[in-house]
């Protein structure tokens, strides 16, 4: 009797593990399907260029991870013969490290470690695979390793432009920002946004709330409620948990500025504009370097000037012409260097 129970339990545990594993690496399966398809169609053609992405949140988070997955899709569309594999949802750095090492040992041409927290692991892994090129972001350090590129986003630039627009649109003069933890890309964006808002309206009060979590949607939602109670009529925020804040803004008719990906679909009535990352701008450079044999050693940045950051307006929102002009002038000023974002 006891033995039979143990067998059932073992079976059950195994099933759990399989299902849990499926959930983590959903896109692996898709990627494999893609591979099979492309191998069939180009059987006689050259070897495909193989890109792997390892990223912390979901591929469709409308934020950080989606920005790199979308960019690689663009590259795939341009180059054609590209095989893409994605391991997403690796909040746990050890899991990410295992995935990075796995892709490297499978001989991928370019392994993208999309998360500043993966730096330490990459520093250990990259030297073991001198034939593989690694790209790591957002960061501005290649550790002096010959096969590591790093990339970052000057998210303060787009943040500044949207801060200017936010202050111009705010009637109460109170603007709310929901952030995760005050580090990296989020800090750059929030600081740029606040600087832009104050530059446009020195009397504006920009309330900044770092919830302390990248993933807590309920907390982000309540942070937005707190902003609303404090009188904010325009809000912005960064990281994947802001979907909770966008919901509150929508419900209360508060304007929203998004970043990292186009967030218009979340609330077409109140999203004014989004700063969208187009990593493909630098991926093109990295890949052409790769093809000429240079596997790393450079630090890239996307910004408004090189087209890696684009302010995408929501066509459904009636943005007053003067505010749009203000935004375009600010973009031009940042590009020609006459405006400093303070970052």
């Amino acid at each position: 009797m006891r033995r039979r129970h143990t067998t059932w339990l073992a079976l059950f545990a195994a099933l759990m593990m399989v299902l849990a594993a499926c959930g983590d690496s959903t896109d692996d399966t898709t990627a494999t399907d893609d591979t099979e398809a492309s191998t069939e169609t180009t059987a006689a053609a050259a070897e495909p260029f193989r890109i792997a992405i390892v990223a912390p949140s979901a591929s469709n988070d409308l934020a950080f991870t989606q920005s790199i997955v979308d960019a690689v899709d663009v590259i795939k569309g341009e180059m054609g013969n590209v095989e893409v594999a994605v391991t997403d949802g690796t909040f746990v750095v050890e899991d990410a490290a295992a995935a990075i090492r796995g892709y490297a040992s499978e001989g991928y041409d370019l392994v993208i470690a999309h998360g500043s927290q993966y730096g330490g692991s990459l520093q250990e892994i990259a030297p073991d695979f001198p034939e593989v090129s690694f790209a790591w972001g957002t960061a501005a350090d290649t550790f002096g390793i010959a096969n590591v590129y790093s990339y970052e986003a000057a998210s303060d630039e787009g943040g500044y432009v949207m801060g200017v627009m936010a202050a111009a649109l705010s009637e109460s003069g109170t603007i709310g920002v929901v952030g995760p933890i005050e580090v990296g890309d989020a800090k750059l964006y929030v600081d740029g946004f606040a600087a832009g808002a104050v530059a446009q309206n020195p009397a504006a009060s920009v309330n900044i709330n770092y919830t302390g979590s990248f993933g807590d949607v309920a907390l982000a939602s309540e942070a937005a409620q707190a902003h609303a109670a404090a009188g904010a009529d325009v809000m912005s925020g960064t990281a994947q948990m802001v979907v909770g804040a966008v919901g509150v803004a929508d419900e209360q008719g508060i304007l929203w500025f998004g970043t990292q990906a186009n967030q218009t679909s979340l609330a077409p009535d109140i999203v004014v504009a989004s700063q969208v990352y187009h990593w493909e701008v630098i991926l093109r450079d990295i890949i052409s370097n790769l093809q000429s044999g240079k596997l790393g050693g450079e630090i890239y940045s996307i910004n408004l000037a090189n087209g890696g950051e684009v302010i995408e307006y929501n066509p459904a929102y009636a943005l007053p012409d003067d505010v749009k002009q203000l935004a375009e002038d600010t973009i031009a000023g940042i590009v020609d260097g006459s405006i400093s974002t303070g970052g």
Binding site: A20, C22, G23, T26, V246, S265, L266
Partner: peptide, 19 residues
């Protein structure tokens, strides 16, 4: 099981977060 399964179903059936 719940963590993996809910994410898997979400990715397959919905994809991008929709309000």
């Amino acid at each position: 099981f719940g963590l993996g399964m809910s994410d898997l179903l979400f990715q397959k059936l919905v994809g991008t977060p929709r309000p």
